[in-house]
Design a protein around this nucleic acid. Structure first.
Length: 492
RNA sequence: GGCCCCAUCGUCUAGCGGUUAGGACAUUGGAUUCUCAUUCCAAUAACUAGGGUUCGAGUCCCUAUGGGGUCACCA
């Protein structure tokens, strides 16, 4: 069965990582069934509209490798895809409901509603509209309308009934209708609320499966009622687990890290890795496979395997591991491409310098090869390799700590400098450096640690680097000896 | 508070009446080693509690407890 899914974000801020998950599941369902994935902008709240957020959202989706068949940018058979451009449609349907007696005009002021809610809260009863305007006569309504009194249109929720529906994840669900408020359908500014707009649009756009976060579950009965009043067939509902931090029962929060989908890219995560990670936020194949490309995911994803648990944890530690895994499994060329791209887009913002960018590509690839398994994020590259491109700053005291005293440190450096000077340029290889260095170790009875760590530090300015002789071999004879001599002079 | 939902190693989870309760992350130990990583091997570690149903329950039912969602002219 061909499925049509939709992702319906509201342009009220940044694109949340949870929305990326919803989009991914929508995409997989549509693509996996040969159907269409549509994007629809739910911009019915004018007060919260954020300039440029639609464009940023589309870009983020593309950056993650997702595409859509219909949407605000490309249009489609059910134009337009901005709800703000469909006002007439919602109005028409709302009026149809009023006509049939399933909705009614309400002229209550927001002030009155607020007071009403406060009273109800104080009494400890369900907060809902008291139906003050339900029984206004046609005359009164007409008069109010003519006077230009602000109004809303409310759904007339039937009393004393259980509203039942089926969710594909949770199964049969039932809500007592008496707890459901007479939801506003059309706001006083003429815009529809979410509830009216989704139902109308999902129907008109022939959406077959509605995927959304679990927070929507309690308002689904309202939608069910709307489908019933309109006499429309309902789509399948699929409510997804909420996202939360590991070690916390709280929702995902900015304080513990990014929640913005685009920010992960900025922070050096690979889109493939984030996507792979996001796939498992509420779903898993029931097998032990956990590395998934988008294509594989589209093939394996099924609604049946979506978790029933309330929340799925966003394990940042695991995301980091996964990202490192992806980095290590890329070919050198692919990885270099990603490093370059990251630096082009984000290094300035991140405040790091892409020294390798000005250097020889062949050399760069060798450098990358040495550090790749030490990288968990793309942004770590620049710091990891800086000493290949510029002389390090070294600290005298620090250089001495490996051998215990300054005299010995100088001695080590001098002896190795001398030994290395005897190696010809052609013989300046990892194997030779290794052989000669070890023989010097024996000759002077240095421990491997004191000697090699001293050399490592004065040449690179770092305590941890790739294997020492790989580093020296790549750095070249001249550069290595320059640095050793410089260290010697500053230490004496 | 009302309504609704959920409950397995430290963490994320698999499990859909009979399993030595599986995997991954993390942790610890070992191998490799000049450091840091990587890689490989190994170890530790879980069914919230109490009642039922059943020959047999992590799995089905009830209750308690715990957690979460939601109660707007926001989505």
């Amino acid at each position: 069965m061909k499925m049509r899914t939709r992702m319906a974000p509201s342009p009220t801020g940044e694109f949340h990582i949870g929305s990326l998950r919803t989009a991914l599941y929508d995409y997989a369902l549509a693509k996996g069934s040969g159907g269409e994935f549509v994007l629809r902008v739910e911009d019915t709240d004018r007060s919260r509209y954020v300039e440029g957020s639609v464009e940023r959202m589309l870009k983020t989706l593309k950056d993650y490798g997702l595409s859509w068949d219909e949407g605000p940018d490309i249009g489609g058979p059910y134009n337009p895809y901005f709800q703000s451009q469909r006002l007439d449609i919602y109005k028409k349907y709302a009026l149809e409901l009023v006509e049939k007696g399933d909705a009614y005009y309400c002229f209550c002021s927001e002030d009155r509603l607020k007071k009403l809610r406060e009273e109800q809260t104080k009494k400890g009863v369900v907060t809902k509209y008291d139906r003050c305007c339900l029984n206004l006569s046609k005359e009164e309504v007409r008069k109010n309308l003519e006077e230009g009194k602000p109004y809303v249109i409310r759904l007339k929720v039937p009393q004393n009934e259980n509203i039942e529906f089926e969710d594909m994840v949770l199964g049969k669900l039932s809500f007592p209708s008496d707890d459901i408020d007479d939801q506003v359908l059309i706001k006083s500014d003429g815009f529809p609320t979410y509830h009216l707009a989704v139902v109308v649009d999902d129907y008109l756009m022939r959406i077959t499966h509605v995927l959304r976060g679990r927070e929507w579950l309690p308002s689904t009965p309202k939608h069910v009622l709307l489908y019933r009043f309109f006499g429309w067939e309902m789509p399948k509902f699929v409510h997804l687990p909420l996202l939360r931090e590991t070690d916390s029962t709280k929702k995902l929060s900015k304080r513990t890290g990014s929640v913005n989908a685009a920010e992960f890219l900025k922070n050096g995560y690979l889109p493939e890795a984030v996507l792979n990670f996001v796939m498992f936020l509420g779903w898993n194949p029931g097998t032990e496979k956990e590395i998934y490309s988008l294509e594989e995911f589209v093939k394996d994803f099924s609604v049946e395997k979506i978790q029933k648990s309330e929340m799925a944890a966003f394990d940042r530690q695991k995301l980091l591991w996964l990202n490192g895994f992806y980095i290590r499994n890329l070919s050198l060329e692919e990885l270099w491409g990603k490093v370059e791209k990251w630096n082009r887009e984000y290094s300035e913002e991140a405040g790091t310098e892409f020294l390798a960018g000005k250097s020889d590509i062949e050399f760069n690839m060798k450098v990358l090869n040495l550090v790749r398994e030490r990288m968990k994020r793309l942004d770590e590259f620049n710091d990891l390799v800086s000493y290949f491109y510029k002389k390090p700053e070294i600290d005298k005291k620090f250089a001495e700590k490996f051998s215990g005293d300054s005299k010995k440190a100088r001695e080590i450096i001098a002896n190795f400098t001398e030994a290395y000077e005897e190696i010809s340029n052609e013989d300046w290889t990892v194997e030779n450096l290794d052989k000669i260095s070890h023989s010097k170790l024996e000759e002077f009875s240095y421990s491997p640690k004191e000697a090699f760590m001293t050399i490592r530090y004065v040449v690179t300015g770092q305590e941890s680097t790739p294997p020492l002789f790989d580093v020296l071999a790549l750095l070249g004879k001249k550069e290595t000896i320059d640095r050793l001599i410089h260290a010697l002079s500053m230490m004496s």
